[in-house]
Amino acid sequence: MTELVRRLIVDVARFEQHAREVANQAISNGASAESLCADVRANAYGHSLDIVEPVFTMSGFRHFLTDEGCASAAHEEEHIVIDAELLYGFARDDNGHSLDGFTRFVGEVVNVKRVPAGQRISYGYTYSTATESTVALIGLGYADGVARRASSVAPIRIGEHDGTIAGRIAMDQFVVDMGDASVRIGDEAIIWGSAALGHPTISNLSALTGIPPLALTSLVGYRVHRESSQA
């Protein structure tokens, strides 16, 4: 039995390269290589400890700050805990630019409808289509970590096209207004991903919702399957 696609894909190759740069920077600023501690609280901020721990180990981190504290607490004074926003790729540079992290959050199109202009969508009928349009129902909701505050504002990528969330996000599903783009049942919908590939970004979602990036990744729900990808 294959369940609906609900995936958080961690790009471990890019993540490892970034974490190594962060570690080397800390060392060049005077930290000892033995002192570096990676913050993996809250299941590595929702990324999955199982996936992230080897990434940080390979990048030179000797210690981990978990929900229970630091692994070797007797030497806590010797640990340097790297700022989590920096480590997970959300720190902003002097130009306000961030790497947007190393995850892609993906759901599945479970229904598609062609609707006329003025069609009202989802609870409270807070949205209506401006023109005749194709709308796609996605099998993810706020229980999965698509924050309800993104209702009617956040962009979603399906195939080569961006649409906007249409109306209120429900617990387990939401609708995207895709205009005249071609969409099929079973297509993948990207909530956030790689800015370099033109996907919607966590930074943008954070700006739209007022929710910090690491809180967004931490809220990704238990039904969402975490996996790693080199691609």
Partner: peptide, 16 residues
């Protein structure tokens, strides 16, 4: 207070 509804408050709490 968070700009949402009680449903999101209860379903977001970590199962752990």
């Amino acid at each position: 207070w968070c700009g949402t509804i009680g449903d999101e408050v209860v379903t977001s709490v970590s199962p752990h």
